[in-house]
């Protein structure tokens, strides 16, 4: 059982270090309920998903799914010929662009609400509105506004611009990014604000004593403090963008225009409209792998291991 693994695995390379008293007598068995829960909620479904991705499960074999033919990597091979690569490209580019655009907005918003002034609480609350609105509501409202005869095109025509189609064709890709930015920037803002708040008062005082003006102070003193939290926020936000199903589904419907056929959409259509459960499981597993790569790289880079750090202190 993973949770009951001996602590040696976690120990740093230098085996000479003696384990402390508390480490030896840790009541690890107390982790059992959590471990069981994780097994039931995460590990078993994951194993099941991998298994389903290896069998030819569809509407015809669903009833006796245990007997569905095993086809090895067949579903994975078919995934690539079913447009998954294109979907991966759309998903990743959309997620990265959305993240890149939200970072400056989020940081600027955090800076604006850092110092005290009258009505700051109100501004902070207002900034969170896009974040607390359910994705479904955001998408429905934008879909209504972006209709060919909707309010956006009506405004644009007042200034002499032909708005055109927002929800079909190549422009739908930029619509998706635009709406995602609108809904997602407060997350970066929250993380940046939290980081700003944790900058020691002395830092501000010291830079004031040194006579730093606002720009050098911002770029050389404050922003370096934000680097860690904002990077983490970028990672989480990118993963969120990649996994966002509600937004494209409500904005464009299924089947989606080719330009916004993101990974969650193709998995959904394969699973719930074509009823190819095996194939869609293979697609989902591939997406998981894809998402795991940046996560792994990041976790390796930051080494979020507080125990090790605690041990060194």
């Amino acid at each position: 059982m993973a949770t009951l693994a001996p602590p040696e695995q976690k120990a740093p390379p230098q085996h000479v270090r003696r384990k402390g008293v508390t480490e030896r007598q840790r009541p690890l068995w107390l982790l059992t309920p959590g471990g069981l829960l994780m097994t039931v909620v995460i590990v078993l479904p994951l194993i099941l998903a991998v298994w389903i991705s290896l069998i030819d499960l569809d509407q015809y074999t669903l009833r006796r799914w245990v007997e569905a033919p095993f086809i090895g990597l067949g579903n994975y091979v078919e995934s690539f010929s079913s447009g998954l690569l294109n979907s991966i490209w759309i998903s990743v580019s959309f997620a990265v662009l959305s993240t890149l655009a939200t970072v400056p907005i989020g940081i600027a918003a955090a800076l604006v609400t850092q110092n005290k002034y009258r009505g700051r609480g109100l501004v902070r609350a207002a900034f969170l509105i896009p974040y607390v609105l359910p994705s479904f509501v955001v998408a429905s409202v934008w879909r209504t506004m972006l209709q060919p005869d909707g309010i956006v095109n009506a405004w644009l025509s007042k200034v002499g611009v032909d708005g055109g189609l927002w929800l079909s064709g190549p422009r739908s890709y930029w619509t998706l990014i635009l709406v995602e930015i609108w809904a997602a920037w407060p997350f970066i803002y929250l993380m940046a604000l939290a980081a700003l708040q944790s900058v020691d008062h002395e830092v501000h005082e010291a830079s004031a004593v040194d006579g730093a003006t606002w720009w050098p102070k911002l770029t050389r003193v404050i922003l370096p403090y934000l680097r860690g939290p904002v990077l983490l926020a970028c990672l989480l936000a990118t993963l969120n963008h990649i996994n966002n199903f509600t937004l494209p589904f409500v904005l464009f419907g299924a089947p989606a225009p080719d330009d916004v056929n993101v990974m969650p959409m193709i998995v959904y259509v394969t699973s719930f409209q074509s009823l190819r459960f095996g194939l869609s499981a293979a697609m989902a597993v591939l997406s998981l792998v894809l998402i795991a790569i940046p996560l792994f790289v990041y976790l390796r880079a930051v080494r979020l291991d507080v125990h090790e750090e605690g041990g060194r202190k």
Partner: peptide, 17 residues
């Protein structure tokens, strides 16, 4: 279900034109 989906998809992709 798939045929219906394929027919609808032709319409969805043709709309912008």
């Amino acid at each position: 279900a798939d045929i219906q989906l394929a027919l609808t998809n032709v319409a969805v992709q043709t709309l912008p034109e």
